[in-house]
Design a binder for these strands. Structure first.
Length: 714
RNA sequence: GGCCGCUUAGCUCAACGGUAGAGCGCUUCGUUUACAUCGAAGAUGUUGGGGGUUCAAAUCCCUCAGCGGCCACCA
């Protein structure tokens, strides 16, 4: 044995050993208790980051359960990550001076597919470096034919159940990415803008009404002016008409409670086609919506003389014209929040677009009941309230994306609709197999929806699609899964949706427990980000200190669900602990009778009375440690467990007991040797879920090269 | 504006009703081979401020302050 623990000597070897032995292969063992975790699928084309390393919680649970003798399965898969991947791929295209518009749909899809396939193994290799005991033998990917089929089936069921609908609504559109986004995918940013006052002349009498706006160019699409019904200033004007400047349209002054009397002038221009609030007001008052900005980010023909101008050019032109006409009043600086594309950072345009939506209320209701009834447990507990609130406030989900890289929506529009031959509602039908004719009017002329599903629509089904595509037996045995472990930042985007879709489709909750981990921060408590330059690359850490150190550092004395601070000091501390552990093992091992030099003194089988007491004390203490260990492991207090083991192994077992018994051990007292070895081995079994490589390496030193701690039961 | 979390030794954090703990750092001492990535001894805290409940509060309640996060609105 080396005098130091050298990770590089063992890590790769042991990863291969575990894989060859098939210890983590998901095989049904009917006589054992099933324990299943589905890995939150990482993007298929990116490098590992610390967020992935946090999934070490899952490995800890899996290894612990396995050692307990449960039938474990940790399902491996990667995600196609729709817009993310297409965005990365388009950057590659750009380098070659091309864009996505240079290719046919099918060609572009195939190119991205090939690109992703090339990169698919990166993630597997990197997760193995972390020591993750996943079942890598059965990888899942959303574009797998059998998964696509289930996703299509889900959509059809939702359609048949009346839970999807196609509607023209205001969506968050990025004119740069060329697609709409759900409300969760819009980032808001404080920005200093300008609030302009604009006068709208009254039609039937002298005078005007002044509105305040941050977006003068949308005036071209105004279809009403709204004031608060309680606002005394405007009471007389309600119901009267004004002329929209520049475009000359006559619109009415209406009343709605949504208007804040104190803000601006208390009178608001309403552009239902380009503002979420205005859309709502428009719905309530049956206003027209006139779209003056197109999906290309330019003014439409409804913008009159401004057609073809970009949004900013149109704004300048409108302001100039208003000024010339003397209709522009006071202007002032105004800080407000602007929605930006989370992907490319461009300002999001709310635009009316016909899309597929899922009716959330009925789905959310069932999910809330399940959470309230405790069919799903949430750890840490404080997130339970959050989850219920999230479900309660979930609005209808826009699942259409105008990108190629995704699962295409299996919805077809019957062309006969125009002639009112097909009576099917809105002319749309859904078919899992490629249809040959419309099921309603039997016409052969129809077209498939060009759009693909939001990525989260397939990931929202991940627990059951991954198991169902592994066979009925696997699904029946392992579903509902045991734990869903993920970051609390995607409680809304992912966990809530898995619950809703899982319950609706399978009739069961997709997982019995949700365990949420926090963020990794630097030593100043700052979020890690490329721009701050404080990002820690887990692969570098593994190179420097080994995977065990990284894992232990993310876990040591942390509170479940809280953010984790990762510093060099902590990693050095963990490395030192690993080394201490190694040397405890080495010391005990080298004092085994067969390893001792022949010329040592006589072996006295009976320890002296005082040493015997020491041994008894040690064993008693170990019992207490063991009891606490299982209690805390089952209570998801993993950081605590590692802290306890660290304290016991180093400061009790090594500093007290080993020091006291050292001389006897060196003399060759076999009882003491046995007792210390037994205690030590038990400790490394406890420690194994946290520090898998080193403990397995030590185990093999004592038990033989072909042995594994994973076959051990505590 | 609504909700949630945090504030404990120089630093990073544990303890969550019964005499405040760990790691790192600091001080002093110690190496004829288990480990200097080590060992021994030690210093350091009116547990953010104020009030309350209790025999007993870092821990429960109220309140104030600061930090962080999520959600909603911003015409």
């Amino acid at each position: 044995m080396e005098s130091k623990y050298i990770p590089a000597l063992f890590e790769q070897k042991l990863s291969s050993f575990w894989e060859t032995k098939g210890y983590f292969k998901g095989v049904i063992e009917k006589d054992k208790k099933p324990f299943c975790i589905i890995l939150p699928p990482p993007n298929a084309n990116a490098d590992l980051h610390l967020g992935h390393a946090m999934m070490v919680y899952e490995d800890i649970m899996i290894r612990y359960r396995k050692i307990q003798g449960d039938n474990t399965l940790w399902m491996y898969g990667t995600d196609h990550a729709g817009i993310e991947t297409q965005f990365v791929f388009e950057k590659h295209l750009k380098k070659e001076g091309k864009s996505r518009f240079d290719f046919e749909r099918n060609v572009l899809f195939q190119m991205i597919f090939d690109f992703v396939s090339l990169n698919k193994n990166i993630m597997k290799n990197q997760l193995q470096k972390l020591g993750f005991g996943l079942d890598y033998s059965n990888p899942k990917f959303p574009m797998d034919e059998n998964i696509v089929k289930i996703v299509h089936t889900t959509f059809k069921k939702l359609f048949d159940d009346g839970l999807t609908y196609r509607a023209k609504k205001l969506v968050n559109y990025c004119v740069n990415c060329g697609t709409s986004f759900s409300d969760l995918e819009v980032d808001y940013e404080e920005r200093e803008g300008t609030l302009w006052n604009i006068n709208y002349p009254l039609r039937d009498e002298k005078g005007s009404i002044t509105v305040a706006t941050t977006r003068p160019e949308t005036l071209l699409g105004d279809t009403a002016i709204v004031v608060n019904p309680k606002d005394k200033r405007y009471k007389k004007l309600i119901g009267k008409y004004v002329i929209v400047p520049l475009i000359g349209r006559e619109i009415q002054i209406i009343a709605d409670d949504a208007v804040d009397i104190k803000f601006g002038t208390g009178a608001v221009k309403v552009t239902p086609a380009h503002d979420h609030n205005d859309w709502e007001i428009g719905q309530r008052h049956s206003l027209l919506h006139i779209q003056v900005i197109g999906t290309d980010g330019k003014m439409t023909k409804d913008a009159g003389e401004y057609v073809g101008l970009t949004i900013s050019k149109a704004r300048e032109a409108v302001l100039l014209s208003l000024k010339e006409k003397g209709l522009l009043g006071e202007e002032k600086k105004h800080v407000h929040r602007v929605g930006r594309c989370y992907r490319c950072k461009r300002v999001i345009e709310p635009l009316p677009k016909e899309q597929w939506f899922i009716s959330i209320k009925p789905l959310a209701q069932k999910a809330i009941e399940a959470v309230k009834k405790g069919e799903v447990e949430v750890y840490p507990k404080r997130f339970k309230k959050d989850l219920i609130r999230i479900l309660d406030n979930f609005i209808d989900w826009n699942i259409s994306r105008q990108i190629v890289w995704g699962i295409r929506i299996p919805a077809y529009k019957c062309a006969e609709m125009k002639n009112e031959v097909c009576q099917h509602e809105k002319g749309w039908f859904v078919s899992i197999e490629k249809p040959t004719n419309c099921p309603h009017c039997h016409s052969e002329i129809f077209a498939q929806d060009e759009d693909t599903f939001d990525t989260w629509f397939s990931s929202g089904q991940w627990p059951y699609v991954t198991l169902q595509t592994s066979g009925d037996e696997m699904y029946n045995h392992f579903y509902p899964t045991s734990v869903m472990e993920t970051g609390h930042d995607i409680l809304r985007a992912w966990v809530a949706r898995m619950l809703m879709l899982g319950i609706h489709i399978t009739g069961k909750v997709p997982f019995k427990t949700v365990f949420l981990h926090g963020l990794v921060r630097d030593k100043h408590g700052q979020k890690m980000s490329k721009s701050k330059g404080n990002v820690v690359n887990p692969l570098e850490v593994i190179k420097t200190y080994g995977a065990d150190v990284l894992r232990a550092s993310l876990m040591f004395e942390t509170k479940e669900g809280s953010d984790v601070v990762l510093t060099d000091e902590k990693m050095i501390g963990m490395r030192n602990f690993g080394n201490k552990l190694w040397n405890i093992g080495r010391f005990i091992y080298m004092n085994r009778p067969e390893n001792r030099e022949k010329n040592t003194e006589n072996i006295d089988l009976k320890p002296p009375v005082d040493k015997k007491k020491t041994l008894e004390k040690m064993e008693k203490e170990l019992e207490a440690v063991k009891k606490n260990y299982h209690k805390n492991m089952n209570g998801y207090k993993f950081g605590h467990v590692l802290g306890d083991l660290h304290a016991f192994i180093w400061h009790r077992f090594a500093d007290i007991y080993l020091e006291e018994l050292k001389e006897e051990l060196k003399k060759g007292n076999i009882d003491i040797q046995n007792s210390l070895e037994k205690t030590f081995l038990e400790c490394i079994v406890f420690l194994h879920p946290f520090i898998p490589f080193e403990t397995e390496a030590l185990w093999q030193v004592f038990k033989g090269e072909n042995e594994s701690i994973l076959k051990q039961m505590v």
